[in-house]
């Protein structure tokens, strides 16, 4: 059996393993959300966060690019009001809004034949349709990780892109090595999604995380 950790817990677990994840504050009401936004600096993103909530975007539980306290107040009230009884305990997650034109995704998946694997792919809403991904078996070396980056078919996405600098390939490869290392260090991890990883100022930053653990 397995269960998924909340976004906040997932992101803390992976962040502690050196994986670049976005910072956040976890709060319970609109007032606290406002002060969190003030601390983090605008614009921010607000999401409804809970262990039973996996597909936030599909349910409209993500509000991005909130530029003013008024934006945050409205978003916080609406998100809290959309919680369903079966969502269990929920919080508001407030995080800096990270902008970038390019989205990648990475993750861990336990394969039936080959055991734990680590994956890198082109992200965004077309991710599964494009399916430009590379996979390796855990553990990977840095050379393996470099080759995963090199293997993506959409290499033009990794160069300078629409006024943004080229992706730091070394940081991307290092993220993959750390993901692989995290699963070695914590065998209870059954799977993980870092989706999306936004490329901001050329560097990868996971702005959503989902970890599935054995129970």
């Amino acid at each position: 059996m397995s269960r998924t950790l909340s976004e906040a817990a997932s992101s803390e677990l992976l962040g502690a393993r050196g994986i670049p994840v976005n910072s956040h504050r976890l709060v319970d009401d609109a007032e606290a959300a406002l002060s969190a936004a003030g601390e983090l600096g605008y614009p921010v993103v607000a999401k409804l966060c809970g262990e039973a909530i996996a597909h936030k975007t599909e349910r409209g539980l993500v509000r991005v690019d909130l530029r003013t306290p008024a934006d945050v107040r409205v978003a916080a009230s609406e998100l809290l009001a959309s919680a369903r009884p079966d969502d269990g305990a929920v919080h508001l997650l407030v995080a800096p809004f990270v902008s970038g034109h390019r989205e990648l995704l990475a993750g861990l998946h336990r394969d039936g034949q080959f055991g734990m694997t680590v994956m890198l792919g082109v992200g965004g809403i077309l991710a599964e349709a494009i399916a430009d991904v590379s996979v390796r078996l855990v553990p990977i070396s840095r050379v393996d990780a470099d080759e995963m980056v090199e293997e993506l078919a959409t290499q033009s996405l990794l160069g300078p892109f629409r006024g943004e600098p080229a992706v730091d390939r070394g940081e991307l490869a290092e993220l993959l090595v750390r993901l692989s290392d995290a699963s070695l260090a914590d065998p209870g991890i059954r799977g993980a999604d870092l989706n999306p990883i936004v490329i901001t100022a050329g560097r990868p930053l996971a702005v959503d995380a989902l970890v599935e653990v054995d129970t």
Partner: peptide
Amino acid sequence: AAASHTGSLASDDRVFDGMCRQ
């Protein structure tokens, strides 16, 4: 069918292909 994007993208053939490269 998989709960995660990684799970649905890591098809048998892609895993096999990555294994060969590795």
